[in-house]
Design a protein around this nucleic acid. Structure first.
Lengths: 334, 334
DNA sequence: TTAAGTTGTCGAACCGGTTCGATAGTGAGG
DNA sequence: CCTCACTATCGAACCGGTTCGACAACTTAA
C-alpha cells in the first residue's frame, strides 16, 4: 500500500508538503499541488486511519452502545440505529457498534483505548452502569433515555409523563371511566427502564385525579405468552371501555387478539398506544397513538455529540431535552 | 492519558519491557512484571488503539456493510447483525457498522484507509457493486448472499433452490395441484437479489414438472398495500388450495388477512413460508416454514473471516457454502 | 537600498505503540 | 576456569501520518 512517503517521492516533494497539500493548512503552489494529486491518483493513496488517529488524536469514529436483551422485542431498535448511522456519516464519522452484554466493560475498553471520539448510549436505564464509566471517559457522551444522574452528558428522551397525560386525557374527554393499561414487561421495570414507570405513574396519577379506574398490567414479552395474557386481561376486566398500551409486543399482537374475540375497535373498545409511526406501519396498527420519534431522538443525540466533539469547549451546558409527544389520531377511540 | 512511557517510567523499566510484559512475547522476571502491573493499574493505562494499529498493522475491527433499503421490510436484518457482532467479539474483534447508501464507495473508503482487518457484506446482490471493490481490498471478505462471481471471497447462503423444492414437495404429496406463490418485492428482483429468483424459479420448475398450477406474484412492501394485494390475489385465484410465501411483509400480514376473509388454515387453505424461527415468533406466525437461519449464516460468515484474518495463507480455498434448509412443521398444511 | 512581510517548501520532532538486535548477568557442562 | 546457552532487559528503529520552526526566494513598503 502506498504511503505518504511514496507520494512525496513520486511528486518530488517532502512528506510534509504532501500533507499540507491534502489538508490545505498551508499554501502550496498550483503546480506542486497538481503533481501531488497526480501521484496520489497513480498510487491510489489513501491516508492510513491509524496513523492519522495517532497524529491527530482523532479517530472520526463514534461508539454506539446498544443493549440487546434476548427476551426483548427487538425490531424497534433499528429505528434508532439507522438514523444515528446516517447523521454520523453526514458529519464525517463512522459508527463502531457495540452490543456486548457487559456494557460498562465494553465502554471502558473502547473509550480508554481511544478507539472513538464520542459515545452514544442507547437503551439508557435509570441507574445505568455505563454512565459512571462514560463520565470518566475523555470522550463526550450523548444518549437516548433518561438516567438518574445527567451530569456531564447530553440526554434525549420522549416526554413520557406528558405522553401518558395526553392519552389519558384523550380517553377521559370521551367519557371513559374504566381503562386497562398495559405497561412494558416486568423486567424493564426491574432493569430500571425509567420510561416504563414514568409513563405508568403519570397515567395512574392522571386517572386517579379524575376518578378514573385504571387496571395496570406489566406485559409479556414473547409469543405465545403475549396473546394469552391479553386474553386473560380482557376476561378479567369486562367493564373496561378503553385500553392504553405502552408495550410493543402487546400492541403488535392486539389486532389479532381483538379480532379473535370479536371485539370491534372503537365500537366495543377504544384503544390507544405509544409507538413510532414506522413501527405502526410495519405491524399495520390501526390505533391512535403517541409518536415515539426514534429517528428524531437518534438524530438529536448524534448532533449534540458532534457539536461537542468539534468544539469541546463551546458546546454549552449539558442538557436534558424531552421530545414533545405528538398524538396521531387513527380513529381507534370514541 | 497514560502512555506506555509513563508506565515504564513509573516501573523503572524501558518501554519495550512494558510491551513485552504485556504481550508475553519475551520472558520477563516475575518481580518486574509485578511492578509493571502495579504501575499499569495505578495509572489506568490502556494501550492506544491507533498506535497499536499502526505498529502491528492490525486494527482488530471488522467492517460490517449492510444495505438498508428504505422501502424494505427491515426487522429481519437485525437477526444477522447481532450474531455477527457476538461472534466477532468472541474472537476479539469490534464491529464497524456501515450503512451508507453508496456501498462501493463506503467500502473503498474504509478498506483503503485500513480501518478494518476484514469485511463482512450483508444483503449481497447478484451483481453486487461492492464485490469488485472488495476483491481489490487488502482485507479478506466474507458475505451472506450469493453473488455471480465468488472468486476470492467466502460466501454463505441458504440453499433457496432446495428450499423451494422442499416446500413444493410438501404440498404436492398432500395433493395440492393449484398453488399461489408470493415472491419478494419486485425491486428485490430488479436490484439483483438472487435469492428471489433462485427460489421462484426452482418452485416454478418443480411445479411444472408435476403439472401443478402455480400463480406467482411479486409481493408489495408496505402497508396498506400488502393487505390489499393479498386480498386481490385471493380474489383472483379462488381455485388455489395452497400458498407459498417467500416474503416477510406478506407473511406477517397474512394471519389478519385470512382471518378477515374467514379463511381457515389449514382447513380452507394450506400455507407454507420461508422465514426464520425468530421472525416467526415475533409475528406469531402459525405456518409451516423453511428456516432461514440468519444467525447461522452470520456466525459462519464471521468465523470464516476470522480464520482468514488470523492466518491469511492457511485458511484454504475460498468456498461457497449453502446452509441446508430445514422445514419446521407448524401444522398449517393438509 | 534596506527592512519587513509573504509564499512555498523542507527537515525534524512527535503521536504511542511493537519489535529487532545487542548486551549484561547467570548457571550448566566440559 | 572457560565456553555456551539462556534469561532479562535496554535502546533504537519503525509504523504512517501531522505540525512546528526555519529558511530561501520573492514582494512590498519605507
Amino acid at each position: 500500500m502506498a504511503t505518504i512517503g511514496d507520494v512525496a517521492r513520486k511528486a518530488g516533494v517532502s512528506r510534509s508538503t504532501v500533507s499540507y497539500a491534502l489538508s490545505g493548512k498551508r499554501s502550496i503552489s498550483a503546480e506542486t499541488r497538481e503533481r501531488i494529486h497526480e501521484a496520489i491518483i497513480e498510487l491510489g493513496f489513501t491516508p492510513n486511519a491509524g496513523a492519522r488517529a495517532l497524529a491527530t488524536s482523532q479517530t472520526m469514529v463514534i461508539g454506539l452502545f446498544v443493549n440487546f436483551f434476548a427476551d426483548e422485542f427487538s425490531p424497534a431498535m433499528l429505528q434508532y440505529v439507522l438514523p444515528i448511522s446516517d447523521v454520523a456519516r453526514e458529519a464525517g464519522y463512522d459508527i463502531l457498534m457495540v452490543t456486548e452484554t457487559d456494557g460498562p466493560q465494553a465502554l471502558r475498553r473502547i473509550a480508554s483505548s481511544d478507539m472513538v471520539d464520542g459515545i452514544v448510549l442507547l437503551n439508557v436505564a435509570h441507574n445505568d452502569a455505563r454512565i459512571p464509566v462514560l463520565r470518566q471517559a475523555r470522550q463526550p457522551g450523548s444518549m437516548v433515555g433518561l438516567p438518574s444522574n445527567t451530569d456531564g452528558v447530553d440526554v434525549f428522551d420522549l416526554d413520557f409523563e406528558e405522553s401518558a397525560r395526553i392519552l389519558v386525557e384523550h380517553l377521559r374527554v370521551r367519557g371513559h371511566r374504566s381503562i386497562i393499561l398495559v405497561t412494558p414487561q416486568q423486567h424493564v421495570f426491574e432493569r430500571g427502564g425509567a420510561y416504563a414507570w414514568r409513563f405508568r405513574d403519570a397515567a395512574l396519577e392522571r386517572a386517579s385525579r379524575y376518578g378514573i379506574q385504571m387496571f395496570s398490567y406489566a406485559g409479556e414479552t414473547r409469543q405465545p405468552a403475549v396473546n394469552r395474557q391479553l386474553n386473560e386481561i380482557l376476561d378479567a376486566r369486562p367493564e373496561a371501555t378503553a385500553m392504553i398500551v405502552h408495550n410493543d409486543a402487546a400492541i403488535a399482537a392486539l389486532p389479532s387478539v381483538l379480532h379473535d374475540r370479536g371485539i370491534g375497535v372503537p365500537d366495543d373498545l377504544s384503544v390507544v398506544g405509544i409507538f413510532s409511526e414506522e413501527f405502526g406501519r410495519l405491524f399495520s396498527l390501526p390505533y391512535t397513538a403517541v409518536e415515539t420519534s426514534p429517528d428524531e431522538l437518534g438524530r438529536s443525540a448524534v448532533q449534540a455529540l458532534v457539536r461537542r466533539m468539534v468544539d469541546p469547549a463551546g458546546a454549552g451546558e449539558y442538557a436534558v431535552r424531552f421530545v414533545e409527544p405528538r398524538i396521531t389520531d387513527r380513529g381507534s377511540t370514541r
